[in-house]
Amino acid sequence: MSTTMLRPPRNRADPRVVPWWTVQWLLLMAPLAVAAVAAYWFLTERPLRLGAAVAVFVVACLVLALVAPRAYYRVERWEVTGEAVYTRKGWLTHTWRVAPMSRIQRVDTARGPVQRLFGLADVTVTTASSAGAVKIEGLDHEMAAELAERLTAITQATPGDAT
């Protein structure tokens, strides 16, 4: 019996996304860890067992913040062909998205403040469907601008209203 699979898209995000995502995760996790430690220190009688649990929690937060970006970097991929935009993401739940060039209505690039420090940008490709936006994350910002330009040129050359 033959098996059919989706091949991974060709390109990875820029390697700089790993430090960027790490920073993001740390920004998310550090307050959690600090809050846990503070709660333990000020609100409890500091029993040893609970202390151990809090320590494990803090370490888990930090490990997650360090490991998750690397794991995501391994699975996130993208590809743009002449006919379609193709992405894969997700670690536990894999999600593949395909948007044909002929249906693309809008191409956006976005750069957050922290993202800018790393010289990265996201490209979002929107189709007529409310559910069909395809996001390519963590590209080199010049490359992202170039890609957006290319996509816009292709979609403008396509006739019809793309619905």
């Binding site: 739940t93 999600t95 998205r97 044909p100 189709t127 069909g132």
Partner: peptide
């Protein structure tokens, strides 16, 4: 002809 793209998902348990 109204299909304007695909989203294919596979959760851990589905896989």
């Amino acid at each position: 002809r109204g299909v304007s793209g695909w989203t294919i998902t596979e959760s851990y348990f589905q896989r």
